[in-house]
Design a binder for these strands. Structure first.
Length: 274
DNA sequence: ATCCGATGTCAAT
DNA sequence: TTGACCTCGGATC
């Protein structure tokens, strides 16, 4: 379930479970064995997350750079850790806990400069925004979007433009702001972008807190609307994501789906305006 | 037992 | 725009 909120939550969870103490590091599957040997027994002393990239810091030894891709999963458990299965790329073990990483696109030991290069090619991350204004903000993203003929749907998924938004947050934030996904970036108004950025900050923070994506406003829940309760087959309550051909919660029209850049796009033609 | 799809990204065309 | 890659659970036979 990897959008940015998952990764930032994983950073917090790794720090809470393994931070400040030596960690046993291994790679039962084998592809990370050499680096695991270098890290084994060292202290996990920092974590970082930018968009969908997770970084686990081991002092002078470097950072473990993890990208889950579409299939990657992290599983936490207690001690003693059970025998690992042969798909576990990375296992961390402390006296009290263990973590198994499977199926990541990336799991590599990198240096500080290599880490910096990754940050440099990513856009601002709503989850790196800070309330005092010193963190990421939407300005760099707006500079790209406001000049672009590309659709807003594609721009929101472009990690160079904005980092951490995935297919669910894209669909949901465009619905919440009544914007047709095929509208060009340059057709977006400044006020619309400011509202989208602020909304992503709030939605994704809640996503980190709850470890799932919920986007339906309290007044729009099926209960509040006097309709039967719904069950989404993924974790959270949403307006349009994977709800093709179902009735829109707000206007009752049919949710549409189409393939855009090899991903499934969902939107409500009745509620989202060009 | 087998197929298919999935909240991602990159390289090759 | 397409194919490749990483894994696994649910649907289908």
């Amino acid at each position: 379930m990897p959008e940015g909120h998952t990764i930032h939550r994983l950073a917090e969870d790794h720090l809470a479970r393994f931070g400040g103490r030596p960690v046993r590091v291994s790679s039962p599957q084998g592809k990370f064995s050499d680096s695991a040997a270098l890290l084994d027994g060292r202290v996990l002393d920092a974590v970082d997350a930018h968009g969908k990239h997770l970084f686990l810091g081991f002092g002078g030894t470097g950072w473990v750079h993890i990208h889950l891709g579409l299939f990657g999963k992290v599983g936490f458990g207690g001690a003693p850790a059970p025998p690992p299965t042969d798909t576990v790329r990375l296992r961390l073990v402390s006296p009290a806990a263990h973590m198994d990483l499977r199926g990541p696109t990336t799991c590599a030991l990198i240096t500080d400069p290599e880490k910096r290069a990754i940050h440099d090619r990513l856009g601002p991350d709503p989850l790196r925004a800070r309330d005092d204004g010193t963190g990421d903000d939407g300005e760099k993203a707006w500079a790209r979007i406001s000049r672009s003929r590309t659709t807003v749907a594609a721009l929101l998924m472009d990690q160079k433009v904005i980092a951490g938004v995935g297919n669910v947050y894209r669909a949901e934030v465009l619905f919440r702001h009544g914007i047709d996904p095929y509208r060009a970036g340059r057709e977006l108004r400044r006020a619309e972008w400011d509202a989208i950025w602020a909304d992503l900050v709030a939605l994704m923070r809640e996503g980190v807190r709850n470890n799932r994506i919920d986007t339906v406003r309290p007044e729009h829940t099926p209960e509040a609307m006097g309709r039967p309760p719904r069950v989404d087959d993924h974790g959270g309550e949403v307006y349009v994501y994977r709800r093709a051909r179902m009735a829109c919660l707000l206007c009752g029209g049919e949710i549409r789906t189409e393939t855009l850049a090899a991903r499934n796009l969902f939107w409500c033609p009745g509620c989202q305006r060009a």
